[in-house]
Design a protein around this nucleic acid. Structure first.
Length: 678
DNA sequence: AGGAAGCTAAACAGTT
DNA sequence: AAACTGTTTAGCTTCC
């Protein structure tokens, strides 16, 4: 594809990257300058890029102008201060200049940056040559500037010394200092110019569509960018629109279809059409498909149209109705340079998110692999957390949890735990196993259900995650939370639906279960009232229920105790990781969805429970098992442990990576949420 | 292996 | 009559 046509070089690099390294070597070599002929050729249509290349040149040129001016000024200053012009040819000036200068090392385009440019930009050989030459000139001038600055500093130090020794020349120092300050500012200015120049180059790369070129090379550019930068790019692209619009809208080179197809993944093609990936920061893999389907089924719903506003990234044009939106879409977002560029940016946004996801997946996998070193479950391939979207909702999926993770008998099932198996596993192996979830937290163990619920309130409210507590425990909690410690059945219902998104579905099922539990358990006492009847809790009866013992091993217990120490850092690390990668989906602040906190809390309570039971039972066990086999501590409560609340079984199970789409085996009647909020 | 616990489903009756 | 409330039974799974 690419071929270096350097006279002294025979190279057929397999990639632009390879080519660039080769190229850069030549450009940095004086001998390369004697080669005015095209040094880079590509079998694509080049002329169409002329306009963009021209703007690149403009940027470089302006940078050059500034550099020349700076040099001129410095020379003038030099003459004033009676200094010689720096002519010394230092090979590594940066190493010898003062730190302050070294930190401002001029940002000559690095090979990596140039590589990006080459990947994004199809420059004509002449343009490329000019660019390289200009780049070299820039480097040279910056070198001279640095050296001059160094000289000035030396001069200053000399003068200072002279002053100290002789106390003379009291007026010269301020002058030199002022000059230095100005020079530093100039350096900074130049640096900014170069950054601008680089940004421009990047943007040019974004705006350039290269037909026939695989989309893969886009990744290196996107890799280093954070979503905010990509968002910024959106704005820039949008603002650059007016300038580019004059170039016309029928460029055959901008073949979006080709580009998308060349990305080789149909899903990607659909993904780039999903504006939400960038607008809300969520990576929703299924969304585009669904949206496109819904679009077909419901002609008035469009992924790019919502709330009367065009949701085309960076547009936000108000469209009163769907028809006007369609008009707007066809007129403003037709297949032209801008739209194509925006599509590409969107594609990069998605790619970036995917990259981040993959990155964190890998990290998580490594962590879990590390923590499950001794796991006996071979197929427990750790999967990333996807709590909101993949948490189980059906009993069948919930049932899959015990099979998916090797959990000890000491670990009651908790549906809210890291997913250890992908949906495919669930669908194939667990989908058809019907049965209820066993082993939930129960307040008979004094599990701090209240603290868990309180701590993860937002999570439970927003994520359709089944709370890891028994119905009895939840009912008791609901009643105890009430001011009068009594609730009507309907109020209990309301509490369930209010507190847990999970109970906003399948009302017939869980309401029946609630009634069943109220009637079945002696701990729930029905009290006749004037208006009807209310339910109260008989704590004595509640505590009577058979306690379940933990049969952990000493090492397990020991590790569990010590695990409190690493719960916090681990959780912090995870959160930091997610924040670092700017994945709002996982950050509490952005979503109000303390997913991690929830996870962590459940886990921590498992730890608490395990510790408590261990301390009281002195259970026997065999050594050699890490708590992490069953426990995934992520979070530690900030408040000190309450012995009464610290009791409780572990729940370490994972559950539930299950999407609602798998709920086809049951016909739930989804009742609307009873919004009888208090 | 058997019992306890828990969940779901369902039938049924009484009340609103 | 329908919906709601409350009780009871049955079947199932998991854990001890």
């Amino acid at each position: 594809m690419f071929q270096c046509v350097f006279s002294s070089s025979v190279l057929q690099p397999h990639s632009t990257s390879c080519l660039f390294k080769h190229l850069f070597y030549h450009s940095a070599t004086p001998a390369s300058q004697k080669q005015p002929e095209p040094i880079y050729s590509k079998k694509t249509e080049i002329q169409r890029q002329t306009v963009r290349a021209h703007s690149v040149k403009l940027f470089i040129f302006s940078a050059l102008q500034v550099a020349r001016q700076l040099l001129l000024q410095q020379q003038q200053q030099q003459q004033v201060s009676g200094l010689k012009s720096p002519k010394r040819n230092d090979k590594q000036p940066a190493l010898q200049v003062p730190v302050s200068v070294a930190m401002m090392t001029p940002q000559v385009i690095t090979p990596q940056q140039m590589q990006q440019i080459l990947q994004q930009q199809v420059l004509s050989p002449q343009q490329l040559q000019v660019l390289l030459q200009q780049q070299q000139a820039l480097m040279l001038q910056q070198q001279q500037l640095q050296e001059f600055y160094k000289k000035q500093q030396e001069q200053l130090q000399l003068q200072l010394l002279q002053q100290q020794h002789a106390g003379k020349q009291p007026k010269e120092q301020p002058q030199v200092a002022t000059q230095q300050l100005a020079f530093q500012q100039q350096l900074l200015q130049m640096q900014q110019l170069q950054q601008q120049h680089l940004l421009s180059l990047q943007r040019q790369g974004l705006l350039t569509i290269q037909p026939g070129q695989p989309a893969l090379p886009l990744q290196p550019l996107a890799q280093g960018m954070i979503p905010t930068e990509l968002q910024q790019l959106w704005k820039e692209v949008t603002s650059a629109h007016s300038a580019e619009e004059t170039t016309g809208s029928n460029h055959s080179s901008l073949d979006l279809t080709t580009t998308c197809v060349s990305s080789s993944a149909p899903s990607k093609t659909s993904l780039i059409m999903n504006p939400h990936a960038s607008t809300n920061g969520q990576l929703s893999v299924h969304a585009p498909k669904r949206e496109s389907l819904s679009h077909e089924e419901h002609p008035h719903s469009h992924p790019l149209y919502g709330h009367g506003v065009c949701k085309w990234p960076g547009c936000e044009a108000v469209c009163e109705d769907f028809q006007s939106f369609l008009k707007h879409l066809n007129s403003e977002h037709a297949l032209d340079d801008r739209s194509t560029a925006q599509c590409r940016v969107q594609m990069q946004v998605v790619q970036q998110l995917e990259l981040q996801l993959a990155k964190d997946k890998e990290r998580l996998q490594a962590m879990m692999t590390h923590l499950h070193v001794k796991s006996t479950e071979p197929k427990a391939a750790p999967q990333p957390l996807n709590l909101v979207s993949s948490v189980t909702l059906s009993k069948s999926a919930s049932e899959a949890s015990p099979q998916s993770l090797p959990h000890t008998p000491t670990t009651p099932t908790a549906p809210i735990t890291p997913v250890t198996q992908g949906p495919s596993v669930i669908t194939t192996t667990s989908m058809h196993t019907v049965g209820p979830i066993r082993r939930r937290y129960s307040d008979k163990y004094n599990v701090p259900i209240s603290s868990d619920i309180a701590q993860n309130q937002e999570f439970y409210k927003n994520a359709e995650v089944r709370p890891p507590f028994t119905y009895a425990s939840l009912i008791r909690q609901a009643i105890l939370e009430s001011p009068e410690k009594q609730l009507t059945l309907n109020e209990i219902y309301n509490w369930f639906t209010r507190m847990f998104a999970y109970f906003r579905r399948n009302a017939a099922t869980w309401k029946n279960a609630v009634r069943h539990n109220l009637s079945l358990h002696k701990c729930f006492v029905r009290v006749e009232n004037v208006k009807g009847a209310v339910w109260t809790v008989d704590e004595v009866e509640f505590q009577k229920r058979r306690p379940q013992k933990i049969s952990g091993n000493p090492s397990l217990i020991k590790n569990m105790q010590s695990s409190h120490a690493y719960c916090t850092p681990l959780n912090a690390a995870l959160q930091a990781s997610m924040a670092e990668n700017s994945i709002p989906l996982y950050t509490t602040a952005s979503m109000g969805n303390p997913t991690l906190g929830n996870l962590a809390s459940a886990i921590r309570e498992e730890l608490n429970g395990a510790m408590e039971h261990t301390n009281s039972n002195e259970s026997d066990s065999s050594p050699g098992r890490s708590p992490m086999q069953a426990v995934h501590p992520v979070h530690v409560k900030e408040e000190p442990l309450d012995p009464e609340e610290a009791e409780g079984p572990l729940s370490l199970v994972t559950t539930a990576n299950h999407s609602p789409d798998f709920d086809h085996d049951r016909d739930y009647e989804d009742e609307p949420v009873n919004e009888d909020m208090e």
